[in-house]
Lab assay of single mutants.
Amino acid sequence: HRQALGERLYPRVQAMQPAFASKITGMLLELSPAQLLLLLASEDSLRARVDEAMELII
Results as ranks from 00 to 15, higher is better:
17 Q>H: 11
16 M>I: 14
35 Q>V: 13
12 R>A: 12
32 S>D: 15
2 R>F: 04
16 M>C: 04
53 A>D: 01
35 Q>L: 09
41 A>M: 14
29 L>G: 02
53 A>P: 01
45 S>V: 12
16 M>G: 02
2 R>G: 11
51 D>T: 11
7 E>S: 07
33 P>R: 09
26 G>M: 13
44 D>H: 08
55 E>H: 12
25 T>P: 00
35 Q>H: 09
54 M>W: 06
32 S>L: 07
12 R>W: 08
30 E>S: 10
8 R>F: 14
6 G>R: 12
34 A>M: 10
39 L>Y: 03
12 R>I: 14
28 L>P: 00
47 R>T: 05
36 L>Q: 05
11 P>N: 11
27 M>I: 10
49 R>T: 10
19 A>S: 10
16 M>F: 06
25 T>V: 15
22 S>I: 13
44 D>A: 11
29 L>C: 04
6 G>A: 15
46 L>V: 02
33 P>K: 08
29 L>M: 12
41 A>H: 11
17 Q>N: 12
49 R>V: 12
9 L>D: 00
12 R>C: 06
24 I>V: 06
5 L>Q: 03
30 E>M: 07
39 L>Q: 00
1 H>K: 11
26 G>S: 15
37 L>M: 10
1 H>A: 13
40 L>V: 05
43 E>W: 07
9 L>Q: 01
33 P>D: 15
26 G>T: 14
37 L>C: 07
51 D>H: 09
44 D>R: 07
52 E>A: 11
53 A>E: 04
25 T>M: 14
34 A>S: 08
38 L>S: 11
1 H>P: 10
15 A>I: 08
45 S>W: 06
30 E>W: 05
18 P>Q: 03
2 R>H: 14
54 M>D: 00
3 Q>T: 09
57 I>T: 02
17 Q>V: 13
47 R>N: 04
18 P>I: 04
58 I>N: 14
1 H>I: 15
33 P>A: 13
39 L>G: 01
1 H>E: 15
16 M>V: 08
40 L>P: 00
36 L>H: 02
19 A>K: 13
29 L>R: 02
8 R>C: 07
9 L>P: 01
46 L>N: 00
56 L>K: 15
18 P>S: 04
13 V>W: 02
43 E>R: 05
6 G>F: 15
34 A>F: 08
22 S>V: 14
13 V>I: 14
14 Q>K: 10
57 I>V: 06
8 R>A: 14
51 D>L: 12
49 R>C: 09
7 E>I: 07
35 Q>C: 08
51 D>Q: 14
55 E>N: 12
50 V>K: 00
52 E>Q: 12
43 E>T: 08
13 V>R: 01
28 L>R: 00
5 L>P: 04
26 G>I: 11
55 E>K: 12
20 F>K: 03
27 M>Y: 05
11 P>S: 11
38 L>Y: 08
23 K>R: 14
23 K>S: 08
16 M>K: 03
22 S>F: 11
2 R>C: 11
14 Q>E: 15
4 A>Y: 07
53 A>H: 05
58 I>K: 11
16 M>H: 06
5 L>A: 05
32 S>G: 09
5 L>M: 11
25 T>Y: 09
33 P>Q: 15
12 R>E: 06
36 L>G: 02
53 A>Q: 06
22 S>L: 10
11 P>G: 09
35 Q>D: 12
5 L>W: 08
30 E>P: 02
30 E>L: 07
42 S>A: 07
31 L>E: 06
14 Q>R: 14
3 Q>M: 06
33 P>C: 14
6 G>M: 15
6 G>Q: 13
57 I>G: 01
55 E>W: 10
2 R>L: 15
28 L>Q: 00
23 K>Q: 13
21 A>S: 04
41 A>I: 09
15 A>G: 08
58 I>F: 11
31 L>P: 00
3 Q>V: 11
3 Q>N: 12
35 Q>M: 12
4 A>F: 05
54 M>S: 03
36 L>E: 01
54 M>H: 07
26 G>Q: 15
20 F>N: 06
8 R>T: 11
24 I>F: 01
24 I>T: 00
55 E>V: 14
3 Q>F: 03
6 G>E: 15
9 L>N: 01
47 R>C: 03
33 P>V: 14
28 L>I: 06
41 A>L: 13
56 L>Y: 14
39 L>R: 00
57 I>S: 01
40 L>C: 03
43 E>A: 08
31 L>T: 04
55 E>Y: 10
36 L>S: 01
49 R>F: 15
4 A>P: 08
28 L>N: 00
19 A>I: 13
15 A>Q: 13
33 P>G: 08
45 S>F: 14
18 P>E: 05
15 A>W: 03
35 Q>R: 05
35 Q>N: 11
4 A>G: 09
56 L>R: 13
32 S>C: 07
8 R>K: 13
54 M>Q: 03
15 A>F: 05
34 A>L: 10
20 F>W: 11
25 T>Q: 04
8 R>I: 15
